[in-house]
Amino acid sequence: MLAGGQSLVQLLKFRRCRPSALVDINGIPGLDAIERRDGELHVGALVRQQALLDDPQVAESWPLLREAAGFVGYPETRRRGTLAGSLAFAAPWAELTAAAVALDAQLDICSAAGQRSLAAREFFRGPGETALGDGELIVAVRFPAPAPGTGAAFHEVSVRHRDYAQVAAAAQVSPDGHGELVLLCVAPTPHRVDVSEALTRDDAIADLLGRLDPLDDVEASASYRQRVAPVLARRALRDAAERAHRRAPA
């Protein structure tokens, strides 16, 4: 299934993937809408990653999505690559998977057999593995709106700017003090952390993240990821909380 092709075509070129057929969905009408529906942000399967940076509604109400999108690839690849494709590809370093989990996104999945919805929090099964079955396609991703005034922050380290994340932390904090934290590359799937305590106690993060199971690959070792994850988590939560404070109505 070909939408943006920024990951799939790479795989074809590496000859790691040799499909007998490739279906280009770019011609299907109605999949390219990004809009607010019933309080949710509805992102069609053909919405490019760059749209998440350009859309004023996203900037206003889903700041975490925008923050995360800023770390995805390069401008040229963001103009082709899609949000849905990034989730379906499920690379362990994919920033948008963290945002989807943190924001409790719902995926609308379609196949010849019918349609179903699945929470992003249930969707990821491992690096490159998802709950998507044969013949299934994500047609839309829906994001519930965070509470007004929610602050968000995304922190990432990579070898160079915009390389694959060595570690990343997506955080958002609502004005009433509810926090979400999702880390990348410290587990086989986006790693959601219960941060209720961490928001009140500074050293709680280190305790909380004491026993991760980070990836170990050519970009970074597990031990580096273990060391840096709490740092990014702390910084992301701090920034998100500060922004929530700033955004909160007086």
């Binding site: 092709g5 920024q6 075509v9 790479q10 070129k13 280009d24 770019n26 401008p75 040229e76 690849t77 103009r79 082709r80």
Partner: peptide, 15 residues
């Protein structure tokens, strides 16, 4: 492509 930079190695001509 339509005024915006893209990777021509990651796109098929038919697209």
């Amino acid at each position: 492509l339509d005024g915006a930079a893209i990777r021509s190695c990651l796109m098929f001509a038919v697209q």
